Simulated scan of single mutants.
Amino acid sequence: MTDTLRLVCAGDRFISADLLAGALEAELAGGARRHALPATIDRVDSDWPTAPFADVDGVREASGDPAALAALTRGAHALVTHLAPVTREVVEAGRGTLRVIGVTRGGPVNVDVAAAAEASVPVVHLPGRNLGAVAEYCVGTMICAMRGLPDAAAGLARGRWDAEGFRYERTGTELRAATVGLVGLGAVGARVAELLGAFGATVLAHDPYADPATARRAGARLVGLDELLAGSDVVSLHARLTEETRHIVDAAALAAMRPGSLLVNTARGELVDAAALDRALESGHLRGAVLDVFDPEPPAAGDPLLRRPGVFATPHLAGASTQVAEESAVRIAREVAAVLTGGGAGRDT
């Protein structure tokens, strides 16, 4: 092992290089494993989210210059990032010295994982890293949308006092009286189920890969998709995007949803046929929708969903919290340190 490790931290305006470096320095100075390793750390930050991420040289949702990152990575022992473009060029630049790549995301989509495997460099990441923030967003916006609060607040901001929200036909359902269907029961879906249980909601879940024991612990009953759509007051999406799940909520699925129900999407925009959703809202079949993700992102300025009454739309903010940034840095530092000290990758690999 070398006397001094050389590390590269590539951050942004959410999880900065300084935040990553501070967590690594604390861990390597004698964290939970009591190892003390001297290290020098090179730092670089992209302008994300001010500048949007993009697909770059075979990796997805990345921000930064691969050539500049490759130059920094040459001779480094570890590369730690949130969403820098860890392309084949970057991995090849670190060949011979690079021991680990750490990514503070649920999935390392901004890493050329195949190139890393060819170079025998493990990639560690953080499944479920933002589950608390996303779960709270889901439940909070469900309550707001079911009660019509976003439209009421917007009207008041325009000077309109709308007392008609007390008309019976315009009132919404409380969570304790609602059935909520979760499409996908991974880490985020399970946490949403637990929170909903505390409100007294009935929770259904559809996930062909879910562990029945996990569903029971979360308080959800596993059902088929058709049963979930027909029986839920709220349908919330938590599935990963695959060819199997792309447009899983299409015109037929929307038609199968309970009249007056609500759709919540904090997963991926491509899970929903946006044109079909707009028609379902225009017809009044759905009460509304909560949308934090779009296809594409950002959505077009003329996207009709953004102006549709009953739509509560936010710019991909469900996973944004102080805790996500700080805890992600600490967790990835622990994982990277485990590899650098010969302990192997930890549970977040």
Rank of each mutant, 00 (worst) to 15 (best):
G224V: 10
A213N: 09
H247I: 09
T214H: 05
A256L: 04
L228K: 04
P208C: 04
R240K: 02
P259K: 02
A252E: 15
L225R: 08
A256N: 02
V235N: 01
R216G: 03
A213P: 01
R221S: 13
E227L: 12
E243W: 00
A218V: 08
M257N: 03
R246H: 14
V234M: 09
V234A: 04
I248N: 03
T242V: 05
S236E: 05
V223M: 10
G231Q: 12
V234N: 02
R240D: 14
R246K: 12
Y209A: 15
V249A: 04
E244K: 10
V249G: 00
Y209N: 12
R217F: 08
D233H: 12
G224C: 10
V249L: 15
A253F: 02
L225Y: 01
R216D: 05
A253S: 09
S236L: 06
V235Q: 01
E244Q: 14
A251P: 13
V234P: 01
A255G: 13
A218M: 08
R258H: 13
E244T: 12
P208H: 01
T245H: 04
V249P: 00
V223E: 11
A210V: 06
A252S: 12
R258W: 06
G260M: 14
S236R: 01
H238P: 06
R240Q: 09
E243K: 03
L237T: 05
H247N: 12
L222W: 04
R217G: 11
R221N: 02
G231W: 13
R240I: 07
R240G: 15
T214R: 06
A210N: 04
V223C: 09
L241G: 02
S232N: 11
E227H: 10
R246E: 15
A215N: 03
G231P: 00
S236F: 01
A213V: 15
E244H: 11
L237E: 01
G231C: 14
A213Q: 13
L229E: 07
L254Y: 04
L229M: 09
P259Q: 04
L228Q: 07
P212H: 10
L254N: 07
D250G: 14
D226R: 05
A210G: 09
A251G: 13
E244C: 08
D250I: 15
V235W: 00
A255V: 12
T242S: 12
L237Y: 00
L225H: 03
Y209R: 04
Y209D: 15
A252F: 08
